[in-house]
């Protein structure tokens, strides 16, 4: 019983990361019908930005500011979110938008996104070398124990952050004017500019939201698993993308449900089987879900009209 609860908490934390990243995929897809394959690497960049920001603010090697850890944490979160959002928007401006303007086939934009991801990954590797970075401890670890179940304050923070982000985005998409514009663009990209909606602004806003959340996921991930390497984003990114699709891509609820589902499946598999089987089981289950419901859990099939 205790083991079960422990695993549920772990799954919630693990799923939170997937959910936060899946969100960026879903937001961009919802607006542009573009699979932004660079998104996993934007998450990685977020973690690295958080690392450099934290190290600089903490100081310690005779350089940096030498601020107290908690203040550093308070500053690092917005810094890495903003800078990561900047990276996402930059990609959109220099790589995706010109292609869109030229009316290139959708898949060429997707390939460009893949290439951007590779540039981020390997550029990072080339710049900072293959040595892994150890993320400094910013928040004193507190362990709360209930019976045999132990929860760290970090885990709680991650889960709470994911839930808050969900509520925030759900509010934006369903209740605000710009959210409405985002949903409208995904339905009809031709008519929307005619209605006076500034499409480019909405797209940039979407990238800000998605990449910002990837930045948040980056810093939270770096704090939970404090070893950074340039390829960390690729595998998590691909998985989060699949999670987004299983949830029903283009739908925020789908990203969260898919993310948590993947978290639960992975932790569940590891609890009962050797951990090498994790990917095999997780992907097989996701594949079966897609076989049964090809548009994902929240996805709506767009019927072809003839």
């Amino acid at each position: 019983m205790d083991a079960l609860i422990q695993n549920i908490i772990n799954a919630l934390q693990w799923g939170s990361f997937y959910a936060l990243i899946a969100l960026g995929y879903t937001l961009v897809y919802g607006v542009l019908l573009l699979i932004n394959f660079a998104h996993g690497d934007i998450f990685m960049v977020g973690a690295y930005i958080a690392y450099f920001a934290a190290v600089f603010l903490l100081g310690g090697h005779g350089e940096g500011l030498g601020l107290p850890p908690l203040l550093v944490f308070g500053l690092t979160v917005p810094i890495s979110m903003i800078l990561t959002a900047g990276v996402g928007v930059t990609l959109e401006r220099i790589a995706y938008r010109p292609l869109r303007r030229k009316g290139a086939h959708r898949l060429y934009v997707v390939i460009t996104a893949l290439m951007c991801g590779l540039v981020l990954e390997n550029g990072n590797l080339a710049l900072f070398g293959a040595s892994r970075k150890k993320f400094p401890e910013l928040v004193d670890k507190a362990v709360y124990t209930f019976g045999n179940v132990s929860v760290t304050n970090l885990k709680i923070m991650v889960i709470v952050a994911a839930v808050l982000v969900f509520l925030f985005l759900h509010f934006i998409v369903t209740r605000t004017r710009i959210g409405m514009a985002m949903r409208a663009i995904s339905w009809d990209r031709l008519a929307i500019p005619l209605m006076g909606v500034p499409v480019d602004t909405v797209i940039v806003f979407t990238f800000v939201l998605g990449s910002g959340m990837a930045g948040l996921a980056g810093i939270l991930f770096a704090m939970s698993y404090p070893i950074l390497d340039p390829y960390m984003g690729a595998i998590i990114g691909w998985k989060a993308f699949i999670a987004a699709v299983v949830g029903g891509i283009g739908d925020i609820r789908g990203a969260f449900v898919g993310g948590f589902l993947l978290g639960f499946i992975e932790i569940g598999v590891v609890a009962f089987f050797p951990s090498t089987l994790r990917d095999l089981f997780a992907f097989t289950i996701l594949l079966v879900i897609l076989w049964i419901k090809p548009t994902g859990i929240f996805g709506v099939a767009r019927t072809t009209k003839i």
Binding site: Y29, L33, I35, W238, F241, I242, V245, V246, I249, T276, L277, D279, L280, F283, T284, L286, L287, L290, P294, T295, G296, G299
Partner: peptide, 17 residues
Amino acid sequence: DYLAIITIAANYIVISA
């Protein structure tokens, strides 16, 4: 795109198997 995912998942499944 949904088929794209199925192919990605198939890639992971084969390697993992």
